[in-house]
Simulated assay, not measured.
Amino acid sequence: MQFRTQILISKSNSPIDYHSKVLSMGSCFAENMAEKFDYFKFQNETNPFGIIFNPVSIEKLFKRVCQEQWFEEKDVFFHNERWHSFEVHSDLSNADRQELLETLNKAISETNKQLKEATHLIITFGTSWIYKVLEKDEVVANCHKVPQKQFSKELLSVEVIQKSIQNTIDLVQALNPKINFIFTISPVRHIKDGFVENQLSKSHLFTALHSVLKTEHSKLNTAYFPSYEIMMDELRDYRFYGEDMLHPNQIAIDYIWKLFSENYISENSLSTMLEVDEIQKSLRHRSFNPESEQHQKFLAKLQQKINLLEKKISHIKF
């Protein structure tokens, strides 16, 4: 007997391996998956502009990156003793305007290079709700704690999201025609918008994304990973959530990663993943007697394993 429903996932025709170069952008769930890629020592870059939730802001950043549209002084503003850009996350904000501009433009330059070399691009959409700064009537990626009266809040229409996703695909493919896209909808619920409003937001993302993915133009090199569906259906219990009851906890993240790796990572990489996992666990081991002969032998054996793996795959470093 089955006591839960399971999501059927199609295996990728272009799986990720240790030669692949992965770039991830989007919501905080993108960071959760990136931590797994980092742990298993895949070649992986994540959110060079910080966490971004809505598809229009993601598109704007890809346009900057693909066309190398540099940030200028008009693109930043001063608030609460720091300089910010409405296009990026507050993690990049800086007390010095010039340093912020240099950081942002360095991110454009480096991400452009990474995108040209990337084999896989993972994009995670979080919400259809957006804020527009009234002064410029522009969608912002982050409000940076600027007073709410300076913004209007809107729900992106399915048509706008659809166009934005297609624009993102077109921009990236013009730079790197061979790249493989993996899209997903974040399983994190944005309850601050309201329960009904969150469902409406997610439904707009689903409708728009799947409308794009089923077109002949976009079927090539695009895939959908059902992280939201796994969380809502297979893991439909609050024991799989963090303390806020909104974000998936580590058990849920581990399970979603397991399903992702079974379907999107090549079988010939699984043995290497096991080796990496064994080394990572050994590195975290804490001895009761670090000076003992037994522990020194353990360290010597561990170093031997590390040397062999780093020699086999040059980009792996512990």
Rank of each mutant, 00 (worst) to 15 (best):
F29Q: 04
A30I: 12
A30H: 05
E31F: 00
N32A: 11
N32L: 12
M33H: 13
M33K: 05
A34K: 08
K36H: 06
F37V: 02
F37C: 09
D38C: 07
F40R: 09
F42M: 08
N44E: 02
N44T: 11
T46V: 13
N47P: 08
P48R: 09
G50A: 02
G50R: 00
G50N: 08
I52N: 11
N54D: 07
P55I: 05
K60Q: 15
L61Y: 01
L61H: 06
L61I: 00
L61S: 01
F62D: 09
K63N: 05
V65P: 09
C66A: 11
C66I: 01
Q67I: 14
W70E: 10
F71Q: 06
E72Q: 13
E72D: 14
E73K: 15
E73V: 09
E73Q: 13
D75Q: 09
F77L: 12
F77S: 01
F78K: 09
F78P: 02
N80A: 04
R82H: 14
R82D: 10
H84F: 00
S85M: 06
V88G: 00
H89R: 03
S90V: 06
S90A: 04
L92D: 08
S93G: 10
N94E: 04
N94L: 11
A95V: 14
A95M: 14
R97V: 03
L100P: 02
T103M: 14
T103L: 13
A107S: 14
I108E: 05
I108H: 07
I108Y: 06
T111F: 00
N112H: 15
N112F: 02
K113M: 10
Q114S: 06
K116S: 12
K116A: 09
E117W: 07
